[in-house]
Amino acid sequence: MATNQDDVKLLGAVGSAFVCRVQIALKLKGIQYKFLEENMANKSDLLLKYNPVYKKIPVFVHNDKPVSESLVILEYIDETWKQNPILPSDPYRRALARFWSKFIDDKIIATSIKAVHTVDDEKEREKNVEESSEALQILENELKDKFFGGENIGFVDIAAVYIAFWIPLIQDITGLQLFNAEKCPNLYKWSHEFLNHPIVKENMPPRDPIFAYFKAHYESLFVSK
């Protein structure tokens, strides 16, 4: 049971889509928390203590009990603080929300990241771009309302923050074409509605420094080859 005296911390880094998911959920729920910025090149003892298995962010700490992996954290938050639910109450719809969120991680985020990093194998890169585009098209066909959660932001919308903010960033930096208004009109419209939602807007990282960081990282891939 959550109380007003709960000690809530989030270990993360500005610019991480997975950390951003948790920040949006906490804001939607109205939960106060302390943000602990992590340097992933020099991981803190706290991060290694709370996530010794994966040693990754985000890590959510509630009354000294750590939870890792962003989708698991979202479920924990939703079950602990009942206000403004992000998962549907119907068991079947809850299962679908979990399915599509995992689909986003496995079929869109993973393949688009591979496409970015495959700079020395054009055939492999095209394969990853094609897989990402196909997965985005499948998700496009699943979007029936204003948001995946209906009229309000829900679990899948939060999971898809990478599509709304980070994929356009990737496209601008790399020239890869994964989705646009012509290919995925529903997703394109959704991305603008989502990013302009007051709570989402408040919790998005500033675009310019994130763009500069990822551009430098992308260019370094060619130097290291």
Rank of each mutant, 00 (worst) to 15 (best):
M1C: 14
M1G: 15
M1Q: 13
N4S: 15
N4M: 15
D6L: 11
D7G: 11
D7Q: 14
V8C: 09
K9R: 11
V14I: 04
A17N: 04
F18Y: 13
F18V: 03
F18C: 08
C20D: 06
C20T: 12
R21A: 00
L28K: 01
I31E: 04
Y33I: 08
Y33K: 12
L36I: 15
E38K: 06
N42P: 09
K43R: 11
D45P: 10
D45T: 05
D45C: 03
L46S: 11
L48A: 03
L48W: 09
F60P: 02
H62K: 07
P66H: 04
S68T: 07
I73M: 05
L74G: 02
E75T: 03
T80R: 10
N84P: 11
N84T: 06
S89C: 14
S89M: 15
Y92K: 12
R93H: 14
R94L: 08
A97P: 13
F99P: 07
S101K: 03
F103D: 02
F103P: 06
D105W: 01
D106V: 06
K114G: 05
K114C: 05
A115Y: 00
H117I: 02
T118I: 08
D120H: 12
D121A: 07
E122P: 03
E122L: 12
K123I: 08
E124T: 09
R125C: 06
E126T: 09
N128R: 04
N128V: 09
N128T: 12
E130N: 14
E131A: 11
E131Y: 08
S133T: 10
A135W: 00
Q137G: 11
I138K: 10
I138N: 13
L139P: 06
E140D: 13
N141L: 08
L143F: 08
L143N: 03
D145G: 14
D145K: 14
K146M: 04
F148W: 01
F148T: 09
G150R: 02
I153A: 01
V156T: 05
I158C: 00
I158T: 01
A160D: 00
A160T: 00
Y162L: 05
I170S: 07
Q171E: 15
I173Y: 08
I173Q: 02
L176C: 11
L176H: 14
Q177G: 12
Q177N: 14
C184H: 06
P185L: 07
Y188P: 03
Y188S: 05
S191D: 08
H192A: 14
L195V: 13
P198F: 07
P206L: 02
P206R: 03
D208M: 10
P209C: 01
P209F: 02
P209D: 03
F211Q: 01
F211D: 02
Y213N: 09
F214N: 13
A216M: 14
E219H: 15
E219K: 14
L221T: 00
F222G: 15
F222S: 15
K225H: 12
